[in-house]
Amino acid sequence: MTDSRDLILGRIRSALVGVDRAEHPANEPVARDYHDSHTDTGLANLLARNLTDYRAHVHRAAEAELPGLIGRLLAARGARTLAVPPGLPTDWLPGDSGTRILHDDGTLTATELDRVDSVLTGCAVAIAETGTLVLDAGPDQGRRMLTLVPDHHICVVRTGDQIVASVPQALRRLDPERPQTWISGPSATSDIELNRVEGVHGPRTLDVVLIAEG
């Protein structure tokens, strides 16, 4: 193993004999002749439009209206169980709906989650230009498995401070050490005659709730 390491690094060094070894990458920044963003106004509307374009269902609500809205979304699907991450604000949860709520304490297995109807989370950041929600396993988002196995994901975005315009802006906010999932619409495939079909393995229904800061 060590031998191959030395072998490969040795091959690289001899392949690069033409490169001045005194040259250091840090001293020659590459030209970044592109925009930091392509837009800076109307981000919530743009996010909604792009999410809808990729067949996510977008809803708007004041924070106080969340429990009612979420209750309706669950009822519409006949969801009997809802999984939530440990740090989800409890005042988002629907009241006395018929849905059983499972608080993930880190012990739910994939097989158990496979029997869960829906999952409700927040997000770390949302990107308006691309219609993307980024989850970074924060307390209101939970383990990656949680938002993957159930067939229905409801994701709440705070429009006041969580929406950025662009990919560069999102990356600056995110910590690479945290495992991330970037979600742009529900699971899809174009593998059969290039028809976009929702839902192969991830949640086939994605509801996004944009909440205005109250």
């Binding site: 792009n50 990729y54 990107i127 230009e129 691309t130 219609g131 993307t132 990656r144 690479p176 050490e177 945290r178 495992p179 991330q180 999932t181 970037w182 979600i183 742009s184 619409g185 529900p186 699971s187 899809a188 991830g202």
Partner: peptide, 11 residues
């Protein structure tokens, strides 16, 4: 696409 449905990153 503006963005593909899923991108995963891990460290």
């Amino acid at each position: 696409e503006r963005m593909n449905p899923y991108t995963s990153t891990w460290t």
